[in-house]
């Protein structure tokens, strides 16, 4: 195969989208930034990747990315998950921009389900892929209704839902896509990031953009904006904690993935953020790499 054919996609505009589409998305992004947390409807296009695979995030990235950018794409915190690889390749082929695994080097980071562990800076933009942009959708399936609820700031149902959790389970059972309130006004879906990542959104120096392709919505959190996870005085918001540290780098402050290592169900915990983990290991942090929960073989 001709390697040149493999690296560039001829016949398409820079970043795939035509200029009129980019302008339409750019206008939506500007309004999204002006109204933090409000979902701006936009004329989402049919992309060559399926809905649900990040078409919203891809359209946002395509509308902002330029030749000077350095792009990082992660899925579940890792650069080498299949869909992250596929999206990174899409942009490498349609823009020719430099890509990186290094969080610190990236100027644009497209993500699905995680915020990198390393704090982001003012020189970075974080683009989230969003499946369901409407935080009230599970409580009210009708768009006309939820739109009115946002307009009137009628968020009682959300608090009732969270409180019902407490009544039933003794705590709020939502563990990802945990609703937040942006700039004391709009309730917003942070996309299915674990609630562990919610505090990182608050007063983040980087601009955060959210794209939902199938649902045709774009929203944003400007830098240095208050983002509050919903809670109650007697049940304050809290994030997950693990009994273990990363089996590879020993980190005790990162989000851990559970890996099953044998047929008995023994398991170990490793950082979900692959760049964070490898950087720590390069800096000399090591752990024994052994399963932390060992399930003994049943007697023969």
């Amino acid at each position: 195969m001709n390697p040149q054919q493999e690296t560039t996609l001829s016949g398409y505009n820079f970043a795939y989208l035509d200029e009129q589409t980019k302008r339409m998305i750019r206008r939506a992004i500007l309004k999204a930034v002006a109204i933090p947390g409000y979902q701006v409807p936009f004329g989402s296009r049919e992309m060559p990747l399926p809905y649900g695979w990040g078409t919203g995030g891809i359209q946002v990235t395509a509308a902002i990315i330029g030749a000077q950018d350095i792009l990082k794409v992660i899925d579940q915190g890792a650069d080498d998950t299949t869909n992250a690889v596929s999206i990174r390749k899409f942009f490498a082929r349609t823009t020719g921009v430099e890509t990186t695994d290094k969080t610190a080097r990236a100027t644009v980071i497209q993500t699905r389900h995680r915020i990198p562990e390393k704090p982001l800076t003012e020189n970075q933009i974080l683009v989230y892929q969003v499946p369901t942009p409407e935080p009230l959708r599970w409580l009210e399936p009708r768009e006309t209704e939820t739109r009115r609820m946002h307009a009137l700031e009628e968020y009682g149902v959300m608090h009732v839902k969270l409180y019902e959790d407490i009544a039933q389970y003794g705590r709020i059972s939502t563990s990802y896509d945990y609703p937040v309130q942006v700039n004391d006004r709009y309730i917003m879906a942070p996309s299915p990031i674990p609630k562990f990542d919610n505090p990182k959104m608050n007063e983040m120096p980087a601009l955060q953009l959210f794209g939902a392709g199938r649902e045709k919505r774009i929203y944003a959190i400007p830098p240095y904006t208050t983002v509050k996870s919903l809670d109650f005085d007697d049940h304050p918001f809290e994030v997950q904690a693990w009994d273990h540290s990363c089996a590879l780098c020993g980190a005790d402050d990162s989000f851990l993935d559970e890996v099953v290592v044998d047929n008995m169900g023994s398991r170990m915990f490793v950082c979900s953020d692959s760049d964070f983990c490898s950087e720590r290991r390069e800096a000399g942090h090591q752990s024994d790499g052994l399963p932390q929960v060992v399930v003994a073989q049943a007697a023969e």
């Binding site: 820079f14 200029e19 980019k22 302008r23 750019r26 992004i29 500007l30 930034v33 509308a63 902002i64 990315i65 330029g66 000077q68 601009l207």
Partner: peptide, 9 residues
């Protein structure tokens, strides 16, 4: 248009 947009953004 891209570089101007980023400045505006």
């Amino acid at each position: 248009a891209q570089s101007t947009f980023r400045l505006i953004l």
